[in-house]
């Protein structure tokens, strides 16, 4: 239960970060969204045994975090929170794929381990990029950007509402759980039957709330379209930011950056 509460406050914190002022925050959310998408696609498009090629991509989160004045510790903590998913996806690779790929002196590393590490790296890069996007553009900003980029309107509106009512839903779940805990003794009342009824209740409450929200929207002249006052304008900086990063991603996708630097250094000495 305590876990739910702390997670709840943390989501709010991510949003708070987006109200900061920094060169990155001032950029058009569309530019940041597109750069993030290209970044994610570039990162996941690598071969499954790729490690060194991925390293160059760390430059993007590093630059964004430092220019955007984001707390690194907080982002890493969020990353760890979802890390188990990535670990479970890759955990069997070292067992199933035992073919030796790299030999470093007495140490032989199997293909399974290499692909496992590659999965973790990709996971770290993509999730961090998504967190950075929201922390610098706010969730609402991302939704607005999606809408302006001609993503179907109902999709963008759904996302917006999902975010707004996530907090209400968590608060409601918390109240239900608290009510259950306070009247459960010796593990009785905590069984799966009660959980089922709890979830059922949550669903019914959610449906009712949905109806009331829709009524509230109708009362204020909702006609299927959400209008906002925010106006977006792409400036020169946005284009420089966008094309600069995209160009960089294309280059390091096709040329191995650590290898290039290595060749350069060995060439000099």
């Amino acid at each position: 239960m305590a876990k739910i509460e702390s997670t709840f406050f943390d989501i709010g914190y991510l949003d708070t970060l987006s109200y900061q002022q920094s060169p990155i925050h001032r950029l058009d959310p569309r530019a940041k969204l597109i750069v993030t998408l290209v970044f994610v696609v570039a990162v996941v498009s690598f071969d499954r045994y790729e490690i060194s090629g991925l390293l160059g991509f760390f430059l993007f989160p590093v630059v964004m975090v430092s220019l955007g004045d984001l707390p690194l510790g907080y982002l890493l903590k969020k990353l760890l929170l979802v890390a188990p998913f990535a670990v479970f996806i890759g955990i069997f690779n070292p067992i199933l794929d035992r073919q030796v790929m790299i030999v470093m002196g007495p140490l032989a590393i199997s293909g399974g381990w290499v692909s496992f590490i590659s999965i973790l790296l990709r996971f770290g890069l993509t999730v961090t990029a998504a967190l950075i996007l929201i922390a610098t553009s706010s969730f609402a900003g991302v939704c607005l950007a999606l809408e302006r980029l001609k993503v179907p309107r109902s999709f963008a509106v759904q996302l917006l509402f999902l975010y707004r009512y996530l907090f209400v839903l968590i608060a409601e779940t918390r109240r239900l759980l608290r009510a259950r805990t306070l009247r459960s003794f010796d593990g009785r009342g905590l069984g799966i039957k009660v959980v089922g009824s709890l979830i059922g209740h949550l669903l019914l409450r959610t449906l009712n709330r949905g109806r009331r929200i829709y009524l509230a929207m109708l009362c204020r002249g909702f006609d299927g379209e959400i209008h906002t006052m925010r106006r977006l304008k792409m400036t020169g900086w946005d284009f420089i930011f966008m094309f600069g990063w995209i160009l960089f991603f294309i280059v390091i996708r096709n040329h191995n950056l650590p290898q290039l630097i290595g060749n350069l250094l060995t060439g000099v000495f």
């Binding site: 706010s138 969730f139 609402a140 939704c143 917006l160 509402f161 975010y163 707004r164 009512y165 209400v168 709330r209 009331r212 929200i213 009524l215 509230a216 929207m217 959400i226 906002t228």
Partner: peptide
Amino acid sequence: DDQLFMPT
């Protein structure tokens, strides 16, 4: 909460 559904 039913009435305030927009981001800000």
